[in-house]
Amino acid sequence: MPEPQRQSPPPPPQSHPRITLIRGDITKQHADAIVNAANSSLLGGGGVDGAIHRAGGPEILEACRALRASHYGRGLPTGQAVATTAGRLPAHWVIHTVGPVYSPNDDRSALLTACHTNSLAVADTLGAKTIAFPAISTGIYGWPIADAAHIAIAAITTTATNVKEVRFVLFDDAAYEAFLRATQP
């Protein structure tokens, strides 16, 4: 009787990805994976989350409902990441991560860092080579854009991964400028 085929684990992370900044719409990105700044319910919402669910179609919501019915009955915890189909988006996968709500009295930067590092880890398990991130937590969650940009860039540049390119897709000029400043020494 032939031995069952075993799926090999992803190769160990090798290096740091190239960072690209784009002013635009994340739902239009041709990438292996795009990151959704999701809410913990995984069932859609406003901002980036709503845009991804609308553009990706019902397949994404269906996959998120399946996750809620299995592993994430209470929702996806802040800082963690999980992948689904990208539905009708020009990507292969959507990696959902829940950013922290900004608090001037409580340092939640480790959770924002975790959103980025855990998204890269999920991308590695998928074999993704290109990934597009929004400016996580900077919309309704109120994180100041300059600080969020610094945290995001630091997380990406200090995390070993097999991802070759990380694109930050930024919705407006202020976000683009903040991320540009964060990439400069």
Rank of each mutant, 00 (worst) to 15 (best):
S8W: 07
P10S: 05
P10R: 06
P11M: 00
P12F: 02
Q14N: 06
Q14F: 01
H16I: 01
H16L: 00
T20Y: 00
I22M: 02
R23F: 06
D25W: 06
I26F: 01
T27K: 00
H30I: 09
D32P: 04
A33Q: 03
I34G: 00
V35G: 14
A37E: 03
A37V: 04
A38L: 09
G46I: 03
D49T: 13
G50Q: 12
G50I: 10
A51K: 06
H53L: 04
R54I: 11
A55I: 14
A55C: 15
P58A: 08
E59F: 12
L61H: 07
A66G: 12
A69T: 09
S70W: 01
Y72V: 08
L76C: 07
P77S: 14
P77M: 10
P77C: 10
A81G: 10
V82I: 15
G87T: 14
R88L: 13
L89I: 12
W93K: 12
V94Y: 04
I95D: 08
G99M: 00
P100F: 09
P100R: 08
S103F: 05
S103R: 07
P104R: 15
D107E: 04
D107W: 05
A114R: 03
C115I: 06
H116D: 02
V122E: 05
V122Q: 03
L126M: 04
G127S: 06
K129Q: 14
I131C: 07
F133G: 02
I136K: 09
G142W: 14
W143P: 15
W143C: 15
A146V: 06
A154N: 07
A160C: 10
T161F: 03
N162P: 00
K164I: 04
V169Y: 07
V169Q: 02
A174N: 13
A175Q: 11
A175I: 01
Y176Q: 11
R181Y: 01
R181K: 02
A182W: 12
T183P: 08
Q184V: 06
